[in-house]
């Protein structure tokens, strides 16, 4: 989870006994543990789920359509007789993949944009005004507009959501970098004659990885929700490929006759987003002492 950091931001350079102390702090943080467990569970189901389903996510079985949940079809079947559990599991692949990719891409782009903006004044003015422009649109509206321009396709969902969420990451990185930039050790580097590259990438970057990681988890959750919303509106993952959003869309018209078609994918989305948010909140408490939660 922290593999992209040159030195793990969870353990910003610690000796062995301090590291075990940090591990204990993680274990004692109930939010990280709860969120992590939920996510692990979902991941596990996403991986082994396909082995547990009676039929594939695309196999239609017209005589058996709209069956309520039973021991064979745990989540029931949809209006084409497809097993809903199989579709939710298959949809999890799309949703998690989209969420993870978007989190990764926005982290990369946001890190570069945020650091450059924090360090170079002219770049700051230009970049931040552009990002402000992007942020002025409601996320879902901008995503729909981009999808309309690019065409309805799963890869384009990732592109659209990355564009939508990058400004948020860039802002966080920029503000953290601005704080670090004022530290004396950065001035000292300038006095030593260090290049901008060295100051920015070797010395400032590692210091903004913690807030970046926290922000990335929230982007992960947000993009899963937004992807579901896009698919629900028909501007996301195109059917018949299942995603949590378009399963909800299929179930919308039947909500009074087949409640399971909306309740199960809906619950799944809720659970995953809850898990990620727990994890993100817990990580924030662990990594950023300024946001210590008040509850004990």
């Amino acid at each position: 989870m922290t593999s992209f950091a040159p030195r793990s931001p969870l353990f910003p350079g610690m000796t062995a006994d301090r590291r075990s102390l940090q591990l204990r702090r993680i274990r004692n943080n109930s939010q990280v543990m709860t969120g992590g467990s939920i996510l692990l569970l979902i991941l596990l189901i996403a991986l082994i789920g396909p082995l547990l389903t009676p039929s594939g996510p695309y196999e239609t079985d017209t005589p058996n359509r709209l069956l309520p949940p039973s021991t064979t079809n745990w989540f029931g079947t949809d209006n084409f007789g497809r097993d809903l559990f199989a579709r939710v599991v298959s949809g999890s692949h799309v949703s998690l993949m989209v969420g993870f990719s978007v989190a990764l891409i926005t982290s990369g782009l946001g890190l570069v944009i945020g650091l450059v903006a924090a360090y170079f004044k002219t770049a700051d003015r230009i970049l931040m005004r552009i990002l402000d422009g992007f942020m002025a649109f409601p996320a879902i509206l901008l995503a729909i507009a981009i999808m309309a321009a690019l065409g309805v396709q799963t890869e384009n969902v990732i592109v659209a959501l990355s564009l939508v969420f990058t400004p948020y990451v860039a802002r966080v990185v920029r503000s953290s970098a601005l704080v670090v930039k004022e530290q004396t050790y950065i001035e000292s580097l300038r006095a030593q004659g260090a290049s901008a590259y060295r100051v920015l990438w070797v010395n400032i970057a590692p210091n903004v990885l913690s807030p970046l990681l926290i922000q990335a988890t929230f982007i992960f959750a947000d993009s899963i929700i937004t992807e579901a919303a896009l698919s629900f509106l028909g501007a996301g993952v195109p059917p018949p490929e299942p995603s949590w959003g378009n399963i909800l869309f299929d179930g919308k018209t039947l909500i009074f006759s087949a409640w399971w078609m909306t309740v199960f994918p809906g619950l799944t989305i809720m659970l995953v987003v809850l898990g990620i948010n727990f994890l993100g909140d817990g990580l924030r408490d662990l990594l950023d002492p300024r946001h210590k939660s008040i509850r004990k």
Partner: peptide
């Protein structure tokens, strides 16, 4: 300031 003049990550 000997505290802020050394990068805490290094």
């Amino acid at each position: 300031d000997p505290y802020s003049s050394l990068n805490p990550h290094r």
